[in-house]
Simulated scan of single mutants.
Amino acid sequence: MKNIKYQKKLRWLFIIVVAIFILSLLHFSKIIISEIKKRETSTIERYAKFIELVTNNEYNLVTLFADDILIENHTIPVIITDKEKNIIEHKNILNEDSEGSKEKIMEEFSSMQNQYEPIKINIYDSKGDIIDYQFIYYKNSQILDIIIVAPYFISALIILILLSIYLILYYSNKSEKDQLWTGLAKETAHQLGTPLSSLIAWNEYIKSKSKIYKKQASSEVEKDLKRLKIITDRFSGIGSKPKLKKRNLKNIISNNIDYLKKRISSEIKTNLNLDEVNYEINEQLFGWVIENLYKNSIDAVGKNGKINIKLFEKNNKIIVEFTDSGIGIKKTEFKKIFNPGYTTKTRGWGLGLALAYRIISHYHKGIIYVKESIKNIKTTIRIELMKQE
């Protein structure tokens, strides 16, 4: 009874912590977004002043704004109109290599009218009286739009991952539930750590700089969002029946290994011997298996060693083998290593191989097992998938 009460308290504590995290993320993101909006509005106001000076031929003051504005604004979409809202000029609307599109410009113009109040440009005669005026319409830059969406995307991602964790725990037995909950919670933190840290770093960078190279920032933020999308697909695939599509296994294995090779010691030598094989799989989940098996081999060899990865067909089967020169696995542990929560590492949580086993056996109807293990010489983990008709 005490244990049940403790679990309920722990569950509520976890929900509260997650809620505080999401609210804090949204709060601080709102502050950052507000600051960027102010800077972009200030840029357009200075841009409007520049246009007004040029229009009224005040050339002595033009040089004060030329470098500051013309060079800086390469991302904020701008449209200049006369007082009747007829478009005179536009900037940052169309790509450099694209042809002019009236429909695109009008669509952007309509969006700008709904987003911000236009800035008025007064045109004076020689006596200093206003004889005409123009308007500058503008909208958020691409980088600002990405930053506005990012916190909501991350919040939804966290909720989705937690829901996936709940579904896994719900359909498991009690002991497995406890192990998977601990493991998946840590795996979630591990998976989210790199892209979230990067996004936070970019936010801090944007806050600290008065001028930023927005195209580079936009590109890097997009990479992190794509990585978060991959993580979303993986966790959602665990919580529901994944769709299987025919894919090239050689490419999937190579891409996942190449991503991790850049982040490990150069003393660890990885050799790929992969045949051309097409098979119906879920690409995200199968890629997760490859990552987990490769990380397992990296942990086994330590700071230096050899890892050989093979992909081939034999006896009407598709076979993937990971062989490393690491510390080996005791024969009594050949099956245990695939149990949730079982690990021989001091800092591990025993989930990687358990997830690999579930993905291969439950979703791809294959088998995964330790083929052989000789201490400090070689250990081989094999995946076998039945060849499809």
Rank of each mutant, 00 (worst) to 15 (best):
L23I: 10
I36T: 07
E40H: 07
N56P: 01
T63N: 15
P77E: 14
K83V: 03
N86P: 00
N86D: 10
I93D: 02
L94W: 05
N95G: 08
F109D: 09
S110H: 08
M112Q: 09
I121H: 06
Y124S: 02
K127S: 07
D129A: 08
I130H: 04
I131C: 02
I136D: 09
K139S: 13
Q142R: 12
I143S: 14
P151L: 06
S155M: 07
I158N: 03
L162H: 12
Y170N: 05
Y170M: 03
S172V: 01
S172D: 07
N173R: 11
L184E: 05
A189I: 04
Q191D: 13
E204H: 04
K209D: 00
S210D: 12
Y213M: 03
K226I: 14
L228F: 06
I230H: 03
T232E: 14
D233K: 15
R234V: 11
G237V: 10
K245N: 12
N251I: 09
K261D: 14
I264V: 15
E267H: 14
E267L: 12
E280G: 02
N282E: 04
E291P: 01
K303W: 00
E313N: 07
E321L: 01
I327N: 07
G328V: 03
T332H: 01
K336N: 09
I337S: 03
R347F: 03
W349R: 13
R358Y: 13
G366Q: 12
G366I: 11
Y369N: 06
S373C: 02
K375V: 00
E384M: 06
K387T: 02
